[in-house]
Amino acid sequence: MKRIIVVAAAVAGAAVVAVGATVIATAADPVSPEVLGATPADAGHGDEGKYTTGDYVLTVHELDDDGEGISTAIGPHTTFYSKTLHGTGTRKPTVLKFAAGADSDAPVVFGYPVPAPGRGVDCVASGTEAAPQVRCETKLPAR
């Protein structure tokens, strides 16, 4: 029964397709509601994305409304700060999508909205590659 559900999800377009640094995502990918964190962002990183990985590679996709954007694979036990959270040039990301593993076609396991300009996001991956968990909080600038 599990295999039928997995195949049905893949056929429905839940997978992310990567072409170079451009990613196309489907509207079927889930996006969690925004959560405002109680603590400010790390000093000097107030409007950046902070992504902390667990025991596996975490691939972060920063996508705009057209599903295009930048993907970054972050190694295990690493913290990465993204200066492209709020865009570069005319491309403005609106959603973050997370996949477990370095494969460009790894399925999205979690989505989170990009916070308003001037705010950062702190996302932490835990669990295993087979059963990943990602949690994000929107952070206000450090004071």
Rank of each mutant, 00 (worst) to 15 (best):
residue 141 P to F: 00
residue 85 L to C: 06
residue 97 K to R: 15
residue 105 D to F: 09
residue 90 T to W: 07
residue 5 I to R: 11
residue 121 V to G: 04
residue 95 V to Y: 01
residue 104 S to P: 01
residue 50 K to I: 02
residue 34 E to L: 12
residue 83 K to I: 02
residue 14 A to M: 15
residue 126 S to E: 10
residue 54 G to L: 04
residue 80 F to E: 03
residue 58 L to T: 08
residue 112 Y to L: 02
residue 127 G to Q: 06
residue 120 G to M: 05
residue 68 E to N: 13
residue 85 L to P: 04
residue 14 A to R: 08
residue 98 F to P: 02
residue 22 T to A: 10
residue 97 K to N: 05
residue 18 A to K: 09
residue 19 V to F: 11
residue 139 K to C: 03
residue 25 A to Y: 11
residue 95 V to R: 12
residue 142 A to M: 03
residue 39 T to N: 10
residue 131 A to F: 10
residue 51 Y to L: 10
residue 9 A to P: 01
residue 85 L to F: 08
residue 9 A to F: 13
residue 20 G to M: 02
residue 119 R to Y: 12
residue 31 V to S: 14
residue 119 R to V: 00
residue 10 A to L: 15
residue 118 G to N: 09
residue 93 P to H: 00
residue 52 T to W: 10
residue 129 E to W: 03
residue 79 T to P: 05
residue 72 T to D: 04
residue 84 T to W: 01
residue 113 P to M: 07
residue 128 T to Y: 11
residue 117 P to W: 00
residue 16 V to P: 02
residue 142 A to H: 13
residue 31 V to N: 09
residue 6 V to P: 03
residue 107 P to A: 12
residue 87 G to N: 04
residue 102 A to H: 10
residue 34 E to P: 00
residue 121 V to D: 05
residue 75 G to P: 07
residue 40 P to I: 06
residue 29 D to I: 14
residue 77 H to K: 14
residue 71 S to M: 10
residue 130 A to E: 15
residue 18 A to S: 13
residue 98 F to C: 04
residue 73 A to M: 01
residue 16 V to Q: 08
residue 131 A to T: 14
residue 87 G to E: 04
residue 57 V to P: 03
residue 101 G to F: 02
residue 38 A to Q: 15
residue 103 D to S: 13
residue 30 P to I: 09
residue 23 V to I: 09
residue 1 M to P: 11
residue 65 D to P: 00
residue 35 V to T: 15
residue 83 K to M: 03
residue 137 E to S: 11
residue 124 V to S: 11
residue 107 P to H: 09
residue 121 V to T: 14
residue 79 T to A: 06
residue 138 T to L: 03
residue 25 A to W: 09
residue 134 V to T: 01
residue 7 V to E: 15
residue 1 M to F: 10
residue 117 P to F: 00
residue 21 A to G: 10
residue 69 G to Y: 08
residue 32 S to E: 15
residue 113 P to A: 08
residue 108 V to R: 02
residue 26 T to F: 10
residue 133 Q to P: 00
residue 53 T to K: 11
residue 51 Y to R: 07
residue 60 V to Q: 01
residue 25 A to R: 13
residue 123 C to H: 07
residue 106 A to S: 08
residue 98 F to M: 01
residue 112 Y to K: 02
residue 57 V to I: 15
residue 95 V to K: 11
residue 102 A to D: 12
residue 49 G to S: 07
residue 28 A to G: 08
residue 117 P to K: 09
